[in-house]
Amino acid sequence: MKRYLNIVVVLIGLYAFAQNESLFEEANALYNEGQYAEAIDIYNEILNSGKHSTELYFNLGNAHYKLNNIAPSIYFYEKALQLSPNDEDVKNNLAFAQNMTIDDIDIIPETGLARFLNALTHYLSFDNWARMAVAFAGCFVLLFLIYYFAYSSFKKRLAFISSMGSLMLCCITLALAFHKYNLEEMDRPAIIFATESKVKSEPNSRSEELFRLHEGTKVQLLDTINNWKKIKLSDGKTGWVVNNDVKALK
């Protein structure tokens, strides 16, 4: 009975995949005909079915860009980049969409050491750094056993130095793995979707207005209280906006 259920599940999955592929081709045809709003409806239908891909987000971004929907186009390009960080087409189109935004926000430059550490940390994913740490730990154990059982003083010395080097590399890669994890946990990007959003000093409508942001601006989410979200800009400014004005990317 269980075997038949597994077959049914596989068949349902194949049917859903084929249906999504058909819808994707239909949406692409509408896009090529200039019917961008209709294409967006079908792309969203695919998204609602649980299908996510770089191509889907990229095409959604393109369709919204054609309709001058600044915030949605940037949002979907950013979603595509999360899946394919090195995709040049997505990066280029995102840059075009960002040129339509109103807000010009400076970026606080990183110091030399922080820039180097973050660049090194982002070179690999958390999983890959963790795998490297495990591999170096295994090398350390193996080399230490060779050192312990070796009779030759030269082999002992070589195995000991190599084992200590492996242990050091294990500690470094493990630290980089945890640093990568912490950076990803703290990274909570979002896009302003309101045409104009009033940023308040406190999470209530009676508090002082600090400044205003416009659609398409990228922010970081820091906190949530009731119907308000605390945001941070790339220049270090912080404030509170209502939930409906901002949409999280994660």
Rank of each mutant, 00 (worst) to 15 (best):
Y77N: 04
E78K: 14
K79F: 02
L81C: 05
L81F: 06
L83N: 06
S84Q: 11
S84A: 15
S84H: 08
S84I: 07
S84G: 07
N86V: 06
N86Y: 10
N86P: 02
N86S: 11
D87N: 10
E88G: 02
E88F: 00
E88C: 01
D89F: 01
D89E: 12
V90Y: 00
V90T: 02
K91V: 03
K91R: 12
K91T: 02
K91L: 09
N92F: 08
N92C: 02
N93A: 01
N93Y: 01
N93V: 01
L94K: 03
F96L: 13
A97M: 00
Q98T: 07
Q98I: 02
N99K: 11
N99W: 05
N99F: 07
N99T: 01
M100E: 13
T101D: 03
T101N: 03
I102W: 03
I102G: 00
I102C: 02
I102V: 08
I102H: 06
I102P: 00
D103R: 08
D103Y: 03
D104T: 11
D104E: 14
I105P: 04
D106N: 15
D106T: 10
I107F: 07
I107K: 14
P109C: 07
P109Y: 07
G112L: 07
L113T: 10
A114N: 09
A114K: 14
R115P: 00
F116G: 09
F116Q: 11
L117G: 03
L117A: 10
L117F: 10
L117W: 09
N118Q: 12
A119I: 12
L120Y: 09
T121A: 14
Y123Q: 15
Y123I: 15
S125N: 11
F126E: 15
F126A: 12
D127C: 08
N128R: 13
N128Q: 13
N128T: 12
A130E: 12
A130C: 09
M132Y: 11
A133N: 12
A133E: 11
V134I: 15
A135T: 14
A135P: 02
F136P: 04
F136W: 09
F136H: 12
G138M: 13
C139T: 13
V141Y: 14
V141C: 13
V141L: 15
V141S: 14
L142I: 13
L143M: 06
L143I: 01
F144I: 09
I146E: 06
Y147T: 10
Y148G: 14
Y148M: 15
F149K: 07
F149S: 08
F149G: 07
A150Y: 04
Y151D: 10
S152E: 08
S152A: 11
S153T: 08
S153R: 06
S153V: 07
S153I: 10
S153M: 08
F154I: 11
F154T: 11
F154W: 01
K155L: 07
K155E: 05
R157D: 05
R157G: 03
L158T: 04
L158E: 01
A159E: 01
A159F: 01
F160P: 00
F160T: 03
F160Y: 07
S163N: 07
M164T: 05
M164G: 04
G165Y: 01
S166T: 04
L167C: 03
L169K: 00
L169C: 05
L169Y: 02
C170K: 00
C170G: 09
C170V: 00
I172M: 06
T173D: 03
T173Q: 00
L174G: 14
A175F: 11
L176D: 06
L176W: 05
L176A: 05
A177T: 04
